[in-house]
């Protein structure tokens, strides 16, 4: 086998090149068309002329608020559920299995369905109307399955020797959880958090019906607010002559996403490194 092409190698290289190429093309296109737009004014000013000119200041603020609501709601719920699933239930039978199955289904539900649900439940039933709060909570529902799965994996991968060792020292279940399992699972919690954040910040469909379109600076969580992704959608689809602004916004969005991912991998690397110095 010294001569000729190994078909497996060729295939895997082709696939790799296609995947990497698509990513580079997308990134290149966005940055090529949008980078020129991005400056301090663009980041701080309010949009004018339905988004054809001006900046995206209020939109960045709305996006941050939506994410804040989303994470504030989903983080405690998600980590709590993950701890419950991994430490207090048997994953193969009964209630634990039911929750797990539900999560699997939930994580596959299209985001537009979450949007409809959020609109019906948060906006109409709970009377929140089109608001940042409703949008954030809808995103929280969507992010929960991701967050729970990642966190649960983390808790499950805590070596059982720690638990047994803790138990053998007479530590109660709560204390074992607090002092042994939780610190060891923390990197996974961060990973889950970032995955969730990434999904939330890129979401459009779930927000259209919940946080709405209004591009003014929000004055409270009960105001409607336009997220970055919706601004891109709106300026590129509904506003003729808005494409350039859409590209500019896309640059900001992609840049934020990349930074979040990089920050997360840096944090977990540092963490894992620190943990592994010992072993």
């Amino acid at each position: 086998m010294s001569k000729g092409w190994d078909p497996g190698l060729v295939l895997s290289w082709t696939v790799a090149v296609i995947v990497a190429g698509a990513f580079c093309w997308l990134l290149g296109d966005v940055f090529w068309n949008g980078l020129g737009r991005v400056n301090w004014q663009f980041l701080t000013e309010a949009p004018r002329d339905a988004g054809r000119s001006g900046g995206i200041g209020p939109i960045i603020v709305s996006t941050m608020l939506i994410l804040l609501v989303c994470m504030a709601a989903s983080l405690p719920l998600g980590v709590g559920a993950a701890i419950y699933l991994s430490e207090f239930t048997d994953s193969e039978v009964g209630f634990g299995r039911m929750i797990r199955r539900s999560l699997e289904v939930l994580s596959g539900v299209p985001s537009i369905v979450f949007g409809l649900f959020g609109s019906a439940f948060f906006c109409i039933y709970l009377g929140l109307g089109f608001s940042i709060l409703a949008g954030g909570l809808t995103l929280a529902c969507m992010v929960l399955p991701i967050l729970i799965r990642a966190t649960e994996e983390g808790f499950r991968s805590v070596p059982s020797e720690y638990r047994l060792g803790g138990a053998a020292l007479g530590m109660s279940r709560t204390r074992r959880l607090l002092y042994l399992s939780f610190p060891a699972a923390l990197p996974s919690v961060v990973v889950g958090f970032v995955l969730g954040l990434g999904r939330a910040i890129a979401e459009t469909a779930a927000l259209i019906f919940t946080s709405g379109y209004v591009d003014r600076m929000p004055s409270s969580l009960f105001d409607s607010g336009r997220a970055l992704s919706i601004h891109i959608f709106d300026t590129s689809m509904n506003v003729s002559g808005g494409e350039a602004q859409a590209y500019g916004t896309a640059v900001v969005l992609v840049f934020t996403l990349l930074s979040i991912n990089l920050a997360a991998s840096w944090i977990t690397d540092r963490w894992l490194y620190r943990e592994s110095i010992g072993s």
């Binding site: 070596p159 020797e161 047994l164 060792g165 138990a167 053998a168 007479g170 610190p183």
Partner: peptide, 15 residues
């Protein structure tokens, strides 16, 4: 378990 302590086969100091 405080009165009856246990040592395991594989040493298991906490990290």
């Amino acid at each position: 378990r405080r009165r009856v302590g246990m040592i395991f086969q594989k040493p298991n100091p906490f990290p």
